[in-house]
Simulated assay, not measured.
Amino acid sequence: MNQSEPENVGSTVSSVSESSVSEPAGPAADTATRRSLGISDFDTLAALESEAIHIFREVAGEFERPVILFSGGKDSTVLLHLALKAFWPAPLPFALLHVDTGHNLPEVLAFRDKVVERYDLRLHVASVEDYLADGRLTERPDGIRNPLQTVPLLDGISEHRFDAVFGGGRRDEERSRAKERIFSLRNAFGQWDPKRQRPELWNLYNGRHAPGEHVRVFPLSNWTELDIWRYIAREDIDLASIYYAHERPVYQRDGMWMTPGVWGGPAEDEQLETRSVRYRTVGDGSTTGAILSEAGDNTAILAEVAASRLTERGATRGDDRVSEAAMEDRKREGYF
């Protein structure tokens, strides 16, 4: 649907209101469930939600063509949930953008398409496969495609003239993300310069940018992984099935449980076995691992995350293990 068409707004509002995503009234879980999850009516989730909604509305009022990066992962799903809440009962005033590596888990792509259809959203897909096919990019020797997302992302931003790009990055995930502001200025080449960071005192955000520049916006900056899961439980947010324990064929590599796919499978010295696993984060299938888990619902996952001493990226993302500055190097080049 083209959300600028007023005749479709009514149907959009009605479809959104069928989900807890769109209901600005209160949490979906009843009092007993909330208490069992350790969630009070006056906790940090209310403040975090309010901050994120404020950021979405600030961007809507300050920029001409914002877009939300949406991969179908838990953080981008929470991001979309908050955006829908921020503008309900009006339709979402932003399009979505997904940089598809071609190595995504099929469950995640199916979930992405289901969400887009459910809320009648506009989705732009920048395909790494297309860039490999016509020679604009070359496959890496290690087969990892996450670093190859940068060029399609920047081209997509330029092609559609997006001046603000929402991302689901959180400061607790990784060192370079910890020092990036909520409004992060990118130059005309999409590059991030840590020395050009702007102060953000008293929730005042500076979105000023020159022609050709754009701003990355991170409404979830101050959230933790545990906050995300508490909010998912509170709002009863639907997620891709891979976030919950399920049985699948996996093999162990570099301390992670990998699954075979179009990106390849186990090497000769790696044994394929069926285990109960779940994913803490989603990314390129060739470098994103699962964890052994029996956590099949939000309550069990909350207990599991609370006990973890490793971030989800540190535990299951091989591309972040290349060096201590791997993520920062990619961000300087224009990565998420």
Rank of each mutant, 00 (worst) to 15 (best):
Y243C: 13
D130C: 01
I237A: 04
A188Y: 02
H209S: 06
T150V: 01
R230F: 14
A188F: 09
D130W: 03
L132D: 10
A164N: 05
I242W: 11
Y205M: 04
A133C: 04
E235F: 04
Y205Q: 04
R136C: 01
R234M: 06
V128I: 06
N146I: 14
R198Q: 04
F183K: 15
D130P: 00
G255Q: 03
E213V: 08
Y251C: 07
E225A: 15
V215K: 12
G212S: 07
P249Y: 02
E180H: 13
P152K: 00
E173T: 00
R145P: 04
R216K: 02
E235K: 10
W257N: 04
P194H: 14
W192A: 06
Y131C: 07
L153C: 11
L239N: 11
V215R: 02
F166G: 15
W223H: 12
Q197F: 03
K195F: 10
Y231L: 12
L239H: 09
Y251H: 09
R145M: 11
G167I: 08
D172F: 11
E159I: 14
V217N: 02
I232G: 01
Q252I: 11
V125D: 10
E129A: 09
Y231C: 11
G212P: 02
I237Q: 07
D227E: 10
P219Y: 13
K179I: 14
E213M: 07
I232Y: 07
V262D: 01
F162R: 09
Y251D: 13
R234Q: 01
T259E: 08
D238G: 03
G167S: 14
Q149T: 03
P249M: 13
G255Y: 02
R253Y: 12
M256T: 00
I232P: 07
V125G: 11
F166N: 07
W223F: 06
S158Q: 05
E235D: 10
D254I: 15
P219D: 06
P219F: 14
G261K: 02
G169W: 11
G207P: 04
A245I: 07
E225K: 05
A240L: 06
Y231F: 15
P211M: 00
V215D: 06
S241T: 13
G169L: 15
T150E: 02
S241K: 09
A233G: 13
S221F: 07
L154T: 14
Y244L: 08
A133V: 06
P219R: 11
D254A: 13
E180L: 14
N206Q: 03
E200S: 01
R216S: 10
T259F: 09
R196C: 09
P249A: 10
G212Q: 07
I228Y: 11
V262W: 05
R248Q: 01
G207R: 04
R140F: 03
A240R: 07
R186G: 07
H214V: 05
V262M: 02
D155E: 01
A240N: 10
E225I: 12
E200N: 02
G207T: 06
E129H: 05
T259K: 01
R136T: 02
G190C: 14
V151R: 08
N222E: 10
V250F: 11
I144E: 05
